[in-house]
Design a protein around this nucleic acid. Structure first.
Lengths: 268, 268
DNA sequence: AGAGACTCTCCAGCTGCTGGAGTGTACAAA
DNA sequence: TTTGTACACTCCAGCAGCTGGAGAGTCTCT
């Protein structure tokens, strides 16, 4: 019979851990005396060694408890294996992001951008597909669409907070004759008028980049986001969205305008 | 100005998280009103996006706080990168252990063994190197050495718990004329007598396997441990130790004998 | 009898939130 | 003006697997 201190040396586990395992019912000592001193035997040593081997394989206390009480070990191991694979993938992703940031330190303007992955929930929008001659046309086209839709749907409401964006339908960058779909999130389906359609946009996973400043600089943000996607092993799964957060309607200075790029992606 | 619920939708973070970030000083709202309602602006949205990008890269709240307050970001990132690499290596090791167990399900006798990695602390031992004709010679040799040492060192004490082991000096398995070193851990250096020497054994990292039963079955345990080392990407860095925990001196039945194999290793 | 080594229980703390209880506030409909 | 509903607030507990510390009791040797 060993007292806890000796048993701790024998098994190379701390006394604290042994008491904890006793507390959670994973490994009870052979006996406990009147003064509540714990006494262990080599039977417990063998059992503890088994526990350690499973702990070192990454299993939780609960999982080990289940295995010890006779539950299907193989199933538990396989589940843990899948979890580990997920964990490794996640850490590898984090590592790749850090490398990207570190490597970006040299390229000055990249410093101003950061990318995050977000789940964008589904939403109902009214939308209009069109080909616009150039980016300046937005300033006239977009208010017109809003007005047309509002005229046909007097009590339709935009979501709060708003979600107002353009989807770039061309697979490439263009300066002229750009195919776009303008969308604005609303609370329900309404009456369609002209080329304005209502539809439910499905939820997507997207990489998001914030761009502060004039639209003419958006090219840098696009360059950044596509490089980010490439180097972090994602693949583009849809057309990019440009969501307008701050703009001419609420900020005087062009430098205050805030736009969010959302590029649908999935992990490669 | 957005209230917390709207800001939460805009940023895709939960309200709980936003309040938590406020509490820990990572992201305070632009203003708080008399009813303690929090109000956010798009400035906070940009800052939060930066925070999210770093969280998704695996940085802790504290690290992000340090970066935000102007500490050396590069150093923090590099430290986190090293940590991630360590984490990934650890998880990969765990995965390999689980695979080993799962794959071992088929080979029946492997089921009885488990391996753990342990740090074995340094210790003072008296030891004697010798060549023994066969394993049965242990039963006469070992008590004789103990007696000889005790005679020369009347008040020398063995450690509690005991640590009594044989090191196999041959690089290979042998049935006869085995080169071994017998060691027993004691509390201090003593008088050397005959071939008995005192020495300090350095601390080692070893893979440990428990073997219950007669010594004649130890071959299986060795087969197991070397296969384990191979398949889990460790390399052997020293001679194996056989530590006698239960044996003829305290257990009647041979089936109760307990021996621990310790093979010094390091990760490949 | 005292000293020192050991053991005990109980509580707090770590990380980054999440869930819930109980309560207060804002805004629109009746 | 009341009432309802959605939203906001502040605590507090819980997760996992220990670790550290306080304060008290026990064992063993001198």
């Amino acid at each position: 019979m060993f007292r806890i201190g000796e048993f701790s040396k024998l098994s190379k586990m701390t006394v604290k851990t042994l008491r904890y395992y006793d507390e959670v019912g994973l490994l009870a000592p052979e006996k406990v005396d009147l003064a509540r001193y714990r006494y262990y035997t080599t039977d417990q040593l063998v059992k503890l060694h088994y526990i350690q081997s499973l702990r070192q394989a990454g299993l939780s206390i609960e999982e080990i408890g289940n295995i010890l009480s006779g539950k299907d070990a193989e199933e538990i191991l396989i589940r843990r294996k899948l979890q580990l694979e997920t964990d490794i993938a996640e850490k590898t992703d984090q590592l790749s992001r850090i490398d990207f940031i570190l490597q970006g330190k040299e390229e000055d303007y990249f410093m101003n951008y950061q990318a995050t992955i977000k789940e964008i929930p589904e939403c109902i929008v009214y939308s209009k597909k069109m080909t616009i001659p150039n980016y300046d046309a937005y300033f006239t086209e977009i208010p017109a669409i809003g007005a047309e839709c509002a005229a046909a749907n007097p009590d339709l409401k935009c979501t709060v907070p708003g979600y107002c964006f353009v989807i770039y339908l061309d697979g490439e960058y263009r300066e002229k004759d750009i195919n776009v779909e303008y969308c604005e999130a609303v609370d329900r389906f309404g009456n369609e008028v002209g080329d304005i359609k209502f539809k439910k946009m499905p939820a997507i996973t997207a990489v998001s980049v914030m761009h502060k400043g004039p639209y003419s600089d958006l090219g840098k943000a696009y360059a950044f986001v596509f490089k980010w996607i490439e180097e972090n092993n994602y693949i583009v799964t849809g057309s990019p969205r440009e969501s307008y957060i701050d703009g001419i309607w609420n900020k005087e200075s062009i430098d205050e305008w805030l736009t969010e790029l959302q590029v649908p992606v999935q992990k490669k």
